[in-house]
Design a binder for these strands. Structure first.
Lengths: 142, 142
DNA sequence: CTGTGTGCAAAGCTTTTGCACTACT
DNA sequence: AGTAGTGCAAAAGCTTTGCACACAG
């Protein structure tokens, strides 16, 4: 089954990218990927839902969640866990860390080379490191 | 109004501690604090609810959440946000970081002096740092 | 026709809110 | 009586699950 093409080439590129990751490029997945991967950014599932349905109105909440989980598993995006109430999805998959403004909810990147971490401490027996997250929490100074 | 006393001194000590922090030591708060502050540990609201009600069965879920939020505001415990699905409450309030095993859900401490962080990078205008969280995610090697 | 994969309504969590109640003034 | 503070049932919000449907072999 072929997907609709609205004569825009970007969709083709996205579809190609998904195929390369072993993901079947359905209409819903392409729409979500187009928004998510357009540029490095941090979005919650809710924000993505709103952006997808602003124009096309064809994707349900559950599908947004399931698709984002799929993208995380395939390494297309990263989860950023800074707020107890929601997960952010990050299309910048390079090594970097985060500044989180607890007043505004805004999330910013710090490139890894601006914050050199020392050597890893000894890990528990039988475990291997999967990643290191550094979150600098800031608030507005009045 | 005085709280019940079951002739145990620990309750008195906890009540004293809460008063020192400006928290009215009601029965529910003392019971939660007794479990939470018994030793340095990481517990979810659900685990605390289970432990409180194992013996006394007198505290509701909502009260556990509200009480823990109160304790966080008064600096008695810290929130640890590592898992998208639940918050952990940490009775170790000293400077330290965490190792999180994504397979088992286990959370361990790293003392701050085992992982010296370099100087803080420049923060956005009009913001001040509130804290830095470092989370090393590990998984079982097979 | 059978089996695999997809999308979404409904269910399942954790957490917050609004209100009845209590305890003090 | 009036007022401030407390605990919890019910509501809200985020995320996952189970199932109907679609498509490929």
């Amino acid at each position: 089954m072929e997907q609709y093409s609205t004569s825009c080439t970007a969709e083709q590129d996205i579809a190609q990218l998904l195929r390369k990751q072993g993901i079947n490029p359905t209409q819903q997945r392409v729409e979500i990927a187009q928004i998510m991967l357009a540029r490095p950014q941090h979005l919650s599932a809710d924000q993505i839902l709103g952006m997808v349905n602003r124009e096309h109105a064809t994707v349900s909440k559950a599908t947004v969640y399931n698709t984002l989980r799929l993208f995380v598993q395939h390494g297309l995006v990263h989860e950023v866990i800074v707020d107890p109430s929601k997960v952010f999805y990050d299309s910048n998959t390079g090594a970097h860390h985060h500044i989180y403004n607890v007043d505004t909810g805004m999330l910013m990147d710090i490139e890894a080379d601006q914050l050199n971490l020392p050597a890893m401490p000894p890990l528990p027996e039988g475990t291997v490191a999967e990643g290191v997250d550094v979150i600098i929490r800031v608030r507005n100074s009045h």
